[in-house]
Amino acid sequence: MNRADRLLACVVALLWGFNFIAIDFALRHFPPIFFAGLRFAVLLVPVLLLVPRPRVEWRWLLGYGLCFGTLQFVFLFIAMDVGMPTGLASLVQQASAPFTVVLGALLLRERISGRQLVGIAIAVLGMAAIAWHRAQTAALLPVLITLCGALSWAFGNLCARKAAAPNPLHLSLWIAVVPPLPMFALSAALEGPSTGWHALATAFTSVDGLAALGGLAYTAGIATVVGAGLWTVLMNRHPASSVAPFALLVPVVGFAAAWLVLGERPHPVELTAGAVVVLGVLFGSLRRRPPELRSTGPREPVAAEP
């Protein structure tokens, strides 16, 4: 990955890290599954009217929408609604990175370099340290549900990679076509047919409701349109094993945002482990220059990294 794409990956991590704060605000008012459908439903009409359908096979579009758009957020929102702490959710969700690398090697035959393996291992050790520290006060079920969301994200990454969309932004926007119907049907079955719609109707009548609408706007507009759009572009340009490790930066942003906005003060162990995560991502993603570039004396011009 070149410097510009690494910067874009860091921007996505920043946007997605703050997205957990927006989700926290939204789930104070909306039922989790209904909100998962609502975040895509608000994009559905503009996408159908204004965005051309991506020129990809339907199976990859549906797979991306089902895994990345539907299952990931259903699992994540349910986990946070049943007690998953915001900071810990931002961490466990990023298990998608090693999941993606492993699945990419197994299913897409993508090659993993030794440097990437070491970088991911360092980052996972940092994640494990944070998880060990936080898991002492968190129930096991929310963690397992969040891991299901992370695995769904990983399968979505592979679908985006296989789709190879000529315009990745169109693909990231068109996933809004897939989630609303299954999510609203699931919400009606599990949360009640009128619970979510009542919450939507009363959203403008309370402070929590207005904050939830703000969370909806951020989640749908910033996290989905901008964040998922950039992420899909990167997944289209580079192997999954090169892009996925940047997702490990999201919990670092998530912990910092939860500290600043929600008053969740991270322990020094978490701060140290977060620094280890950053170190691992940087080590795994920065490509070492070949020996001839580090030697002194005259040398032939070298083409820029793609």
Rank of each mutant, 00 (worst) to 15 (best):
H133M: 05
P168L: 06
R59F: 09
G69V: 11
M183I: 13
G126D: 07
P142C: 10
A257P: 09
G69C: 08
F99L: 06
A121I: 11
A188Y: 11
V261W: 05
L50I: 10
P166R: 04
D208V: 10
P179H: 11
L144A: 09
V124P: 02
I222A: 01
V74W: 13
M183E: 06
G114T: 11
S241A: 15
E305V: 14
T195S: 07
Y218S: 05
E264N: 11
F68W: 13
P180A: 03
T232F: 03
V101I: 15
A223W: 08
D81F: 08
A36P: 04
L271K: 04
V261R: 01
W174P: 02
A13M: 11
A176L: 10
H29C: 09
A223Y: 07
W174F: 04
L71C: 08
R115N: 02
G196S: 03
L107C: 04
R237M: 04
P31S: 05
S152T: 10
V243S: 05
T146E: 12
L125K: 03
A257C: 12
V250Y: 04
Q72N: 12
W58G: 09
L38T: 12
I23A: 09
Q94K: 07
T296F: 10
F30A: 01
M183N: 13
L88M: 12
L169C: 00
F246P: 00
A244F: 02
F68N: 11
A189K: 14
L76F: 03
E191M: 02
L248Y: 00
T219P: 09
P239Y: 04
A131Q: 03
W197T: 06
P245A: 03
G263L: 05
I122S: 00
S152Q: 06
G229V: 11
R289W: 11
L91A: 06
L234E: 05
T137S: 12
V11A: 14
L248P: 01
L71I: 06
M80S: 01
P166M: 02
I120N: 01
F34S: 03
D208H: 07
E305K: 13
V243N: 02
A164P: 08
L66V: 15
E264C: 11
L91N: 01
G37H: 06
L76H: 04
F246W: 01
I130L: 03
R39D: 09
A275N: 00
R299S: 06
P179V: 12
G63H: 06
A228W: 14
P306M: 14
V102E: 03
A97I: 06
I21S: 11
P193G: 13
L62P: 07
F283A: 07
M1A: 14
P182E: 00
V226P: 00
P301C: 11
Q116D: 08
G284W: 04
M127A: 05
N157E: 02
P54D: 03
R161C: 06
A154F: 12
T137H: 15
L8D: 14
L181Y: 10
A201R: 12
